[in-house]
Amino acid sequence: MTAASVTTRASAPQRWSWLGRPRMAGSPAVLPAVLGLPVLLWQAVFFAAPLVFLVVMTFWQVKAFRLEPAFVLDNWSRILFSATFQRALVHTFAVAGTTTVLAVALAFPAAYTIAFRLSPRMRDLAVAFLVVPVFSSYMLRIYAWQIVLSPEGMVNALLGGIGIEPLPLLGGAFSLQVGLLTLTLPIAVLILVFAMAGIDRTLIEAAENLGCRRARVIAHVIAPSVRPAIMLSATTSFLLAFGDYISPLFMTGSKPPTLSILIVDTVKSGSQWPRASVIGVAMLVMLALVLGIGQWLSSGRTARRGAAR
């Protein structure tokens, strides 16, 4: 997510290497080992190992509704070749793609206003306002949207007040996107705000002094320098929307089901955890691919831009 990418991005080339420093030669590896091993162990046991086990489980069997170790490929073929899975895959990609485009398109102007049009104090307030929802009960916020959007909900009550027929807001692509944007938009805006706030103002002023109109400044100065951040907020939005379970469930009544919904549905075939795991592993592979492409796009373009100068 954000945290992940901020960190890797922030890891500038290290000048200090413990290998070559004489003062630490007595026990060069003790401190890093003491610091690093607990982290390594913890993440290995509670994160990496479960995921590896998930892959192993895709080859297991269910007998008498209990899991049994085995090595069968049947789970894979049964899931990958089923029309249901393929349709859900296409649908999930379409939904997550739409969310990504919407999130970035809405986040960019908002981030621009926050970064360049608000006073520093207001800017901090805006950032605080955006950080809060990232960490506070997404599930409840979706539940609240149901109250707002339902046929007899708040919006329709307001519309009814001015004599407009109730709109079927809940239970379709619109409400699904409302839900997913609730999840992704604050993060997408935050990433872009941080990137834009980091732009050297003198560059913008220089461009303006040269008579550039605002639109040209945005297109030629701001957009290129935040391109990695745009890619980051796009991939983050995609990732969140792709794996989300709550919005498809509560906002559309899982019609049609996304891959996350399909995971839960598949278990219902009599404790079919192995087949559900196949979908899970397939989703992870696709996410890794998308992230890889995103990384490649942002780094590739930056390099080309650098070369062109």
Binding site: P257, T266, G270
Partner: peptide
């Protein structure tokens, strides 16, 4: 039929 036959039919219906 197997449980999964019925459940898969249901999943297919949902995904149509």
């Amino acid at each position: 039929q197997e449980i999964s036959d019925w459940n898969d039919a249901w999943s297919e219906f949902k995904s149509l």
